[in-house]
């Protein structure tokens, strides 16, 4: 039973970390558009490169 004393806080902490990450990502807008990325992934390799370049361009 003593194991619980260690495992419980760890599980709660992990849960908390993931919840925090989830909230951060929602705020960043990763969940705003759920259908387009699913389609984008079907395009050929070279186009993915274009999309990557875009992102870099945006972050400037």
């Amino acid at each position: 039973m003593e194991a619980l004393l260690i495992l419980l806080p760890i599980s709660l902490l992990l849960g908390g970390v993931f919840l925090f990450l989830f909230i951060m990502n929602v705020k960043k807008g990763d969940f705003d558009d759920l259908s387009t990325p699913a389609k984008r992934i079907l395009f050929e390799e070279e186009n993915i490169n274009i999309n990557l370049n875009e992102k870099q361009g945006l972050k400037k």
Binding site: D32, D33, T36, R40, F43, I50, E54, G57
Partner: peptide, 23 residues
Amino acid sequence: CLWLIENTPRMSEEIISANLNYE
């Protein structure tokens, strides 16, 4: 259409990137 819109940077020098929300 999605693909075409997002490839507009290849058609024009002036467009850096294009992002379409399909929904």
